[in-house]
Simulated scan of single mutants.
Amino acid sequence: MTETTTATDLASIRADRLTGAGEFWAAKIAKSADNARLTYKAAGVAVGSVASRISAGKHQFLVDEPAGLAGDDAAASPVEYALGAIISCQVVVYRLYAQQLGLVIDELTIEAEGDLDVRGLFGIDESVRPGFTDVRLTVNIAGPGTQEEYEELGRLVETRCPVQDLFANLTPVSAVVAKV
């Protein structure tokens, strides 16, 4: 099988999956709007110096910090995973809406940078927030569409990406601490 055949097959498989998912969810939601509500779960256990072993569904992954932040540098940090989360969510949403709009994406790469001031993390300056102060995405798309078509797709993705929404909007978080 040649690279062209493989790429064509992959594009066809992806198109079928994206179309099928859209049709499935449209039908499910048409029966009841309650069917649109999903709850995701993950659990973590502390390991190593400051690392966590995370379980999410049938998947497990390690999260750690670099040595400068008390870690063993055995895995990406929580904020690196956050950047990875926005990138991977954007990939899904770019593919989904490109399919709906009939746009072809031959290649898609996304880079994310986030600025964080550790004075907030370490409580050195209470006026400094502990999270990112700015996140920048660079999206590179190759395909037969025009620059304007891909820019319009990008604007649509910005309004539909669940993880970008987490970064852009306040999301309530609550915690219960229990001694066991």
Rank of each mutant, 00 (worst) to 15 (best):
P130F: 03
F132M: 10
F122Y: 13
A85L: 08
S127W: 12
Q99T: 02
L116A: 08
G102S: 06
I124S: 13
D106P: 00
V93N: 00
L116K: 08
R119Q: 15
R129F: 12
L108P: 01
V92H: 04
L103R: 07
F132Q: 00
E113Y: 07
A75P: 08
A75N: 00
A85Q: 01
A82W: 07
P78Y: 03
R129A: 15
G84S: 11
I105K: 13
Q100M: 09
G114E: 02
I105R: 14
L101H: 10
V91E: 10
V128A: 14
L96Y: 05
R129W: 11
F122Q: 10
A112S: 06
R95A: 05
G120V: 02
S77N: 12
L83K: 01
G102W: 14
S77M: 11
T109P: 10
E113V: 12
I105P: 03
G131T: 00
S127H: 15
V104R: 11
I87T: 03
D125C: 15
P130L: 05
G131H: 10
E80V: 11
E113S: 08
L96I: 05
Y81F: 14
A76M: 15
I124T: 14
Q100R: 15
L108V: 07
V91D: 05
I124F: 14
P130A: 13
I110P: 04
A98S: 05
L108D: 04
S127Q: 14
P130E: 05
R129L: 13
A76E: 11
D125N: 15
A112Y: 04
Q90G: 11
I86F: 05
I86K: 01
A76F: 14
L83Y: 04
V93Q: 02
D117R: 01
A112I: 00
D125G: 09
I86W: 04
F132C: 00
G120I: 03
A76H: 14
G131M: 09
V104N: 06
L116S: 04
L96E: 03
L101P: 06
D115R: 11
S88T: 11
Q99A: 08
E113N: 07
L121W: 14
E80F: 06
E80Q: 14
V118F: 14
G102P: 11
A82C: 08
V79R: 06
G120F: 13
P130H: 06
L108C: 10
S88F: 09
Q99K: 09
I86E: 00
D115T: 13
L103F: 13
D115F: 09
A112L: 04
I86M: 09
E126K: 15
Y94S: 03
A112C: 07
L121A: 07
A75D: 05
D117C: 03
A74S: 15
C89F: 06
L101C: 08
I110Y: 09
E113P: 03
A82H: 06
A112M: 05
V104M: 11
D125H: 09
Q90T: 08
A98Y: 00
V91C: 12
R119P: 14
A75C: 13
L121G: 02
S88D: 07
T109V: 09
Q99L: 01
G114R: 03
G131I: 00
A112W: 04
D117K: 03
E111T: 07
C89A: 07
G84V: 01
A75M: 07
E80R: 03
G120P: 11
V91P: 00
